[in-house]
Design a binder for these strands. Structure first.
Lengths: 341, 341
DNA sequence: ACGATTGTTGAAACCGGTTTCAATGAGAGT
DNA sequence: ACTCTCATTGAAACCGGTTTCAACAATCGT
């Protein structure tokens, strides 16, 4: 450490006690303005910076929060979702004067071990948890540890748990309604049952069709795991069933679907229309650019940090709050809306 | 905190002093085996976990390292490079029993502020710095603060600085030689002068051509900033000059270049061959899949953590080590090697 | 058998802050 | 003028560990 100055030195230089310096540092009352100024002058002249560790020990608060990402390696690597989220949370942490620590694990078991280590360390004021699986395994551990936490993405047992999520049901609904309103029949979907987001988007798809009185044809449902490859495989499965349009549950899977269609010699949107979900950079980079449901990941990340900060400050995690961020449809070329106009 | 147990309780339960418990915890010598066992028994029975903060304060070591990413927002979002690197470093930190904290900033000024905050906090045992710009602004600050640090990517003033980098000169050389050896003439490049990686790749390009006795035609050089859009723009600039092949300095820029070519009605590799750099997921997902130079980001991240850990342990940052990871050419469709066989 | 050495152990100081509590002094109330 | 408050301040305890140092017991050499 380069920092040899301690609160004692400042106290001596300013001719006051450590306690008074501490009061000035923490902007506590009960210090005469002139004394406060004198101390501040010494502090700024010397460039003194209080030692955080000591502060933590004494105040039992670290201002460090952890972000636990538990997802398959493939997912973390190839889907821009987690990077975007991480980045948003990083920014949110900075805005709230919190230090962000990052933990990535690839399996649920590994995630639990990581979590154990984190909880044992006792270093963190709170945690943000995000998982591509349903994440239930973590909940009991977290609750026992009595540490403030916020989920990103609804855990399947959400009761009493604070979480922030996108309005996935609405997303599936918007995407599918858009396709029905463009006049397509035989609308399929590539969904996912890996997490609640997938369930919800599928539910939205179902409700949109139901609303129009269209029966769900189970053979037009395919499933993927959010990877490009799974989107490719799912679309291959769907092609023989000749859907006119498909709602794909994520941009990345849509990229795979596009490849399958290209290989099959089918044009998008002329032969098959596509709408996907997320609106991450690949959506606009795709050929054709994807009509997709935008979820505001930045907002989600930010709200998660803010909710966590609030729990930490107030000490009140209850009543649990479920924050659902709105989504909106971004119309590009892949749905064929342009042609139909 | 749920953890009410302190070292004192353990000491009392085991009928020894705090000092002895501490010796057991830290696996220090000078404890009789039977006493050690007795203490360990109490520890495991009670589930006692030492308070890290207190430990830090007393031992002046936090086991927390910071990763500072300073890059344009666009870059962090749309290029998978940083996510891949972050993920690798996260894994490396876990392997070395270090906690990783993440800081993202978008401008050099913001980066400096962030760094100031970090250094002031005095919480970190060391830092890993990575920047899409040349990052020199940070060096003096870091050196003054006397904190262990390792750069990822060669800073332009690299003397006395520990860094880990890919062999970018070799990368540019391999890509370009591959194109010459396939018989292409008029080989252009989309380079970048934003960072030393760009400089180095360009240098490799130059040396490959020079080696074959081919004069560099300045009009076949274009520059980008690693964004897809800049690759698109650069390729548009190059098209009228009719290169037969182009070495593109990153996969993401190559994606943009592909789009420009597609819009111009040029086929890859039949009309123009492409080789890019990085071998990130988009390279294989592109149409056609990109021949590209693979840099082992995972290894780079891991080595950076290990080097940093070593500096922290030994306290010796000198002599500075420059670790250059090998690269290798991955041949796919975009270079046309398959057709030529 | 006896002093010298070595291995074990605990008391106490320490890390650098925060917080409690009692002492002090000035202003308010009568 | 004389209490009674109340704001200001510093001394000391505390947070929960690590580390130093001195005391002690056991082992060694002669």
């Amino acid at each position: 450490m380069s920092n040899k100055l301690t609160i004692r030195h400042i106290a001596e230089l300013a001719n006051v006690s450590k306690a008074t310096v501490s009061r000035v540092l923490n902007e506590y009352p009960h210090v005469r303005p002139e004394v406060r100024e004198k101390v501040q002058k010494v502090i700024s002249e010397t460039g003194y910076q209080p030692n955080n560790i000591a502060r933590l020990l004494a105040s039992d608060r670290s201002s460090i929060i952890g972000l636990v990402i538990s997802a398959s390696a493939q997912m973390v690597f190839s889907d821009p979702y987690f990077p975007a989220l991480t980045e948003a949370i990083s920014r949110g942490a900075a805005d709230n004067n919190l230090i962000l620590s990052l933990f990535v694990s690839y399996t649920e078991k590994q995630g639990r071990d990581t979590l154990n280590g984190i909880l044992a360390a006792g270093l963190f004021d709170g945690l943000i948890i995000t998982a591509d699986h349903k994440g239930d395994a973590f909940v009991s551990q977290l609750q026992e540890a009595d540490i403030p936490f916020v989920f990103i993405g609804r855990p399947s047992e959400a009761e009493g748990i604070n979480y922030v999520d996108a309005d996935n049901v609405k997303g599936g609904y918007l995407a599918t309604s858009h396709l029905t309103s463009l006049g397509y029949g035989r609308i399929g979907t590539i969904a996912s049952d890996q997490n609640t987001a997938g369930d919800d988007r599928l539910a939205g798809y179902r409700s949109a069709l139901k609303e129009r009185g269209i029966a769900i044809e189970e053979e037009l449902l395919a499933f993927g795991d959010y990877s490009l490859e799974s989107g490719y495989a799912a679309m291959k499965e769907l092609i023989p069933r000749q859907p006119e349009a498909v709602f794909v549950g994520s941009d990345t899977m849509a990229l795979g679907a596009l490849r399958a269609l290209r290989e099959a010699g089918l044009r998008v949107p002329e032969d098959i229309a596509l709408v996907s979900h997320d609106d991450l950079p690949p959506a606009i980079q795709a050929d054709p650019p994807l009509t997709t449901v935008q979820q505001q990941i930045a907002t989600t990340g930010q709200m998660a940090v803010e909710k966590l900060a609030q729990i930490i400050m107030t000490g009140k995690a209850y009543p649990a709050q479920h924050i659902v961020n709105p989504v909106k449809l971004i119309v590009r070329a892949s749905c064929g809306a342009a042609q139909l106009n």
